[in-house]
Every structure is written in structure tokens, then in C-alpha cells.
Design a binder for these strands. Structure first.
Lengths: 200, 200
DNA sequence: ACAAAATTTAACCATTTGGTTAAATATATC
DNA sequence: GATATATTTAACCAAATGGTTAAATTTTGT
């Protein structure tokens, strides 16, 4: 049936608890319970909450970011790239709706330690995308825009709807099924919106 | 000099601590210290941490949302509205950079109690903006777009850069001064981007 | 000056929490 | 079957934390 190692059970449980409760809100006991083991064994695998959290957080980031870099630095035409980014990321976060908020949150609350130690610190090479935007601009295909502006706009449009879901649903009085459908629409609407905005 | 009542000192301190540490991360002792009083007096004013938190959270929301409703439901032309929203909200959050993440976070972590009790539950009437978008579309001034799509796009573009600042700065290796300048640019770039995207 | 309200002091309490320990038991490995 | 590793049990600890209490002191309003 399930060939799940104890460490995997721990990681899965820890991930769930940390992501839903945050580092400060998470309880070691709850993680142990969810993993179906006891606290002693939990500490047998990870000496401290901090250590466990760091392991999980690194996993989460490794899960979340490389895909972004991959598409961004691919040789796809700009428009295809935008559509693929939207599709891939909305698909990804649809299965992990609380992940964005969790990451943003922990990143803002423990900036130094987390960032500097996590392999994250190198950033992503934006040269390729920068050139691509410049070329499209020279061709007259799009208006001028900096990589940073372009990237942040896309990321905002893709990620915020997950992080801000509760707020937005409340403002608009949208129920859950409607919001799911809405998000499904956005997989194509966001790229359309972005490409439209880029027209000269 | 400073005519600050004890309750004001408490609220100011609690606000700071809650916003930077979150409900679970905040400590009553820290709030008392920051307010320049002692724990006994803190409990003399607010019987429990939860009560204090609720008071603060309600304040924060009242601070944050009505302005949005105001502009959205005003009689301004669409384009002016978009520019004003951007300017007002980026100005507002520039002075309270951690507020968005705090609100999103607490809202997601205690949905029922917070939402249902806070006067928030009524939502905002979108009829006016919906009509405005429809009229502009009939005039051929913009392409067709739902209020929800329009609103969420704007909010995403305005709010995410604050909530996701750490992540984005790390991805792009942008330093603090650059990011401030970048945000300043966005006050006009975001409305431009949105209005561009709306062209038929 | 007097009473009421605000504030401090300081000790105290119960609970939660991360973490430890040691012995017992089960499981795998050789 | 012996040995090492994994897991449980259960008791325990120290620190942190939210909260209380009662008495003393200060401030304020009348």
C-alpha cells in the first residue's frame, strides 16, 4: 500500500501544520499527532522545531521557485511564456492554496536567517528575459517596460489571488465555487490582460 | 507635548507588535513594554490578548478598507479612478508596509470569528463600478471585463508588491533604495498598465 | 482636601510548550 | 539468534506565557 518512510510522514505532517498555522502558531505535538508518531520520535529525527521548520521551508521554496526560473529563462516566445507561467503557477497553487501566504509571511518575519542561509540568495538571472523584452520592443511588438516591472506585475496577478482570497471573497461576497471558477478563468484572462497591457 | 492617552499608547504599541509579529507571535509583555506601562495595566484596559487583538484588527480594517470603497463608488471617470486608487493605496501602504501581509494572514488564519464579527461581512456594493465598466464597454472605450476581474487585478498589482516585497527583492536582487524608487514609479506605471490592458 | 480612578509593584498561578530522558519494545539487518 | 536501529511509553523539566491579585502609590476630578 503506502511505502511512506517515517521521515516522509514527518515532513508531510510538518508541512501541513506549518503552512496552515505558521512557524509561531505550529505545535510540535500537533505535527507528531498528524504524522501518527509521538513527540519523542519527532525530536529523534529533528532535534528542534527550528531545525524542522528550516527543512520544511527549504523544501517548500525548492518546490515553488525553480519552475518559475525555468519558464522565465526558456526560449519560448514572450506570449507563450506568459501563458505558460499563468497556467503552471495557477495549477500549482490551486493544489497548495495556503502556500503563497505562508512563504511571504515567514520570509518577512525572519528575513535574515531564512534568506541568507537558504540557497535562495543568488536570485535569478534576468538577462535573458530583459533582452527578450528589449527585442520585442525594438520590433515594435510591445511597449517599453523593465523586466522588474513586467515580472512583478505577472507575479502579483498570479499570486495575490491566492494570498488575498479571503479578503477578496469577502469584499465581493463571492462564494467558494464561484471563486474556483473565477480562478480557472484567470488562467487565460491574466495572460490576456498582461499581453494587452504590453501592446504599444 | 504629547497628549496621548494610555489607551492610545496601548493601541499604538499593540498595533506595532501585532502587525510585525502576528497574533501568535505577539507577546503581551512586549506590548506593555512598548507602551511604557506594565502588564497589569494592560490587562486592566483589555482583559485578554484576544480582546486586544480584535480591537486592533478592527481598527486596522477600518483604516484600510473604507477608502477603497469611497474611490470605487465615486463618480470619477474610470481612468481617474484607477490613477487615484493607485496613488492613494500606494501612499497609504508606503507608510504601513507590513499591514497588507498582516491582514491577509490573520484573515486566513481565523476566518470565521474575525470575518463574521467584524462589520466587514457586508462586502462592498459593486453595482456602480459594474455599470461604469459596462458603459465604457458600450462606448467602445474599453474591452469587456467583469468587475471582479478588474478589481482583483488592480488590488493584486497594488497590494502584492508590499506583501511580497522580501521575496521579490530577493529574486531580483534589488536593494532597498531601488525598491522604494521602483514603488514610486509604480504609482503611475500600474494605472498605465491597467488602462492599457483595458483598451479594446 | 477628599474620593475615585489610574498606575505601579511584585508576587503568584496554571497552562502550554519545546525539549529531554531512560527504559521497554518492536523491527530490521547480518 | 544477536545486534543495531527505530519506536513507544511515560514521566519529567525548565522556560515562556497569559492572566490574576492585592496592596501601595500616584493622578485626577470635584
Amino acid at each position: 500500500m503506502e511505502e511512506q518512510t517515517t521521515e516522509e510522514k514527518i515532513k508531510e505532517a510538518a508541512r501541513k501544520v506549518f503552512i496552515t498555522k505558521g512557524m509561531t502558531g505550529a505545535r510540535m505535538q500537533e505535527i507528531a499527532d498528524l504524522a501518527g508518531i509521538n513527540k519523542a520520535l519527532l525530536h529523534y529525527y529533528y532535534r528542534s522545531k527550528e531545525q524542522l521548520f528550516n527543512a520544511i521551508f527549504e523544501d517548500v521554496l525548492k518546490d515553488m521557485l525553480p519552475g518559475l526560473f525555468g519558464i522565465v529563462n526558456s526560449d519560448l516566445p514572450l506570449e507563450v511564456k506568459v501563458y505558460q507561467l499563468a497556467d503552471k503557477y495557477m495549477e500549482f497553487f490551486s493544489k497548495r492554496p495556503e502556500m503563497p501566504l505562508f512563504v511571504l509571511n515567514e520570509l518577512q518575519r525572519h528575513p535574515k536567517e531564512l534568506i541568507e542561509r537558504l540557497h535562495l540568495q543568488k536570485g535569478i538571472d534576468l538577462t535573458h528575459l530583459r533582452n527578450q523584452l528589449e527585442e520585442e520592443y525594438q520590433k515594435g511588438a510591445i511597449r517599453q517596460i523593465s523586466v522588474e516591472m513586467f515580472l512583478l506585475n505577472i507575479i502579483s496577478l498570479l499570486v495575490f489571488p491566492f494570498a488575498g482570497r479571503t479578503l477578496f471573497q469577502n469584499i465581493t461576497q463571492m462564494d467558494d465555487p464561484s471563486y474556483l471558477e473565477f480562478q480557472e478563468q484567470r488562467k487565460t484572462e491574466v495572460p490576456k490582460f498582461v499581453m494587452n497591457a504590453l501592446r504599444p
